[in-house]
C-alpha cells in the first residue's frame, strides 16, 4: 500500500515537472542574435520576447557593456520606399503575446561599439522589464 502511494506521488511529480517544462508562465527572450560589426561602428541585435504571463509587460531599456549607448529603435519604410528609424522609449509586450525584434523592424541599436563583433562571438545583454524585472541573455554574433 505504501509502495503504491509513493509510485502515484512520483507519477504526479513527473507530470507536474513536464507541465512546467512545456508551458512557461513567465516572460522569456528567445532566438537572440547580433550582427557582425566593427568597433567604432553602430551595431544591431534582435530577439523574440514572449510574455507567457497574464499581465502586460513593458521593455523599459536594454543595456550592454560593448557600446557607448544601447538603444531600442524601429525601422520603418513608407509608401515611397523611404526608410527611417525611430528611437523607442518603451516597448509593450502584451500578456500571452510576443514581440519580435527583426531586421527592418524593431531592433537593439549599439551606438559606437567599443569592440568588434565577429561571427562566433557571444555578447551579454540585459533587458529591463517593468514587471519581469531584469533579464540577462547571451547573444551569439552571426551573419543574417
Amino acid at each position: 500500500m505504501k509502495n503504491k502511494n509513493s509510485i502515484s506521488l512520483l507519477l504526479l511529480a513527473t507530470l507536474l515537472v513536464n507541465a512546467c517544462g512545456s508551458f512557461s508562465a513567465e516572460l522569456t527572450v528567445q532566438d537572440a542574435w547580433a550582427r557582425p560589426a566593427n568597433a567604432g561602428e553602430n551595431g544591431a541585435a534582435y530577439f523574440i520576447i514572449e510574455n507567457g504571463s497574464n499581465i502586460d509587460d513593458t521593455l523599459l531599456s536594454v543595456s550592454s557593456d560593448i557600446a557607448a549607448a544601447t538603444e531600442v529603435h524601429m525601422s520603418m519604410v513608407d509608401g515611397n520606399g523611404v526608410m527611417s528609424m525611430q528611437m523607442q522609449e518603451a516597448v509593450i509586450v502584451p500578456a500571452k503575446d510576443k514581440v519580435e525584434f527583426k531586421p527592418g523592424g524593431l531592433h537593439v541599436m549599439f551606438v559606437s561599439l567599443t569592440r568588434d563583433l565577429k561571427t562566433g562571438d557571444t555578447i551579454t545583454l540585459t533587458l529591463d522589464f517593468k514587471e519581469a524585472g531584469s533579464l540577462t541573455i547571451q547573444v551569439p554574433v552571426r551573419a543574417q
Binding site: 538603444e71 519604410v77 520606399g81 523611404v82 526608410m83 527611417s84 551606438v111
Partner: peptide, 21 residues
C-alpha cells in the same frame, strides 16, 4: 532619392531617412 536628416534623442546624434531602393 529622398534624403533627410532627422533629429533624435539617440546617442548616435541625428538619423537619416533615405530612399532604400
Amino acid at each position: 532619392v529622398f534624403v533627410e536628416k532627422q533629429n533624435s534623442d539617440s546617442a548616435a546624434g541625428y538619423l537619416v531617412s533615405h530612399t532604400a531602393s
